[in-house]
């Protein structure tokens, strides 16, 4: 057996444990990102000024600053305000809030792209404003949200590596430890890059499937 294979097989259990934490981080982050995208995207279109301003402030602050700076701020600064969080919690929080600020603009754009006639038909059928939004508008907007959301989720996956810098033992952290112990940089980091790439491909596949599944019957050209 070639020595690099032997080495990879030997280190695989450790890398696998790191990968599991990375995936948990990503899933937690994605869940929070979806909630924040919808909340802030809809909130930015609200008729209530303070709510709208709050959403704009959230979006601008998290889009305007660096994800790593946000992570350090949450991890190192929050304890001074009496809030202590674990590395994992800080990771999920920052990943979700950061991606949510980008997703909010996607949500808003997709909802505004739903033709006006759809709102009018919903009014004519006397749906309540909430029913209009959740039964008529959002289901149509979701299809066009999916591709840009897929890109945002992949950025989120890439950002999970930042949690290594606050000593969370996810994939990148484990890889660096192995490298420091063995000095075999190329093998470890190449293996890790391939693992991230594989997870990214999975995210893309899931998003494509969801898009295909949700757009059955929809004629994207002349939707009326």
């Amino acid at each position: 057996m070639p020595p690099f294979l032997e080495f990879l097989i030997a280190t695989f259990p450790m890398l696998w444990r790191g990968l599991v934490i990375t995936i948990q981080l990503a899933l937690g982050g994605i869940a929070l990102a979806i909630v924040m995208s919808l909340a802030a995207g809809l909130g930015k279109m609200s008729k209530i000024p303070p709510l709208r301003w709050l959403c704009i402030a959230y979006i601008e602050v998290f889009r305007g600053t660096s994800a790593l700076v946000q992570l350090f701020w949450f991890y190192f600064v929050l304890p001074f305000f009496g809030v202590s969080i674990t590395e994992f919690q800080a990771g999920v929080l920052v990943l979700g809030l950061n991606a949510g600020s980008y997703g909010a603009e996607v949500v808003r754009g997709a909802i505004q792209a739903v033709p006006r006639g759809q709102y009018e038909a919903a009014i004519a059928l006397n749906f309540t404003p909430m029913q209009r939004l959740w039964r008529i508008i959002v289901p149509q907007a979701v299809v066009s949200m999916l591709p840009p959301m897929g890109t945002i989720f992949i950025e989120l996956l890439k950002n999970t590596a930042l949690a290594a810098l606050i000593t969370l033992n996810e994939l990148t952290f484990v890889a660096k430890q192995i490298r420091d112990d063995t000095q075999r940089t190329t093998e470890v980091f190449l293996a890790v890059l391939v693992m991230y790439f594989a997870v990214a491909l999975c995210i893309t596949a899931v998003m494509r499937t969801a898009e295909w599944w949700l757009s059955r019957g929809l004629d994207r050209g002349g939707v009326r």
């Binding site: 890439k158 999970t160 590596a161 890889a175 980091f189």
Partner: peptide
């Protein structure tokens, strides 16, 4: 599709 941090390392 892969993290900048790993590429940096």
């Amino acid at each position: 599709s892969t993290p900048l941090l790993v590429q940096l390392y």
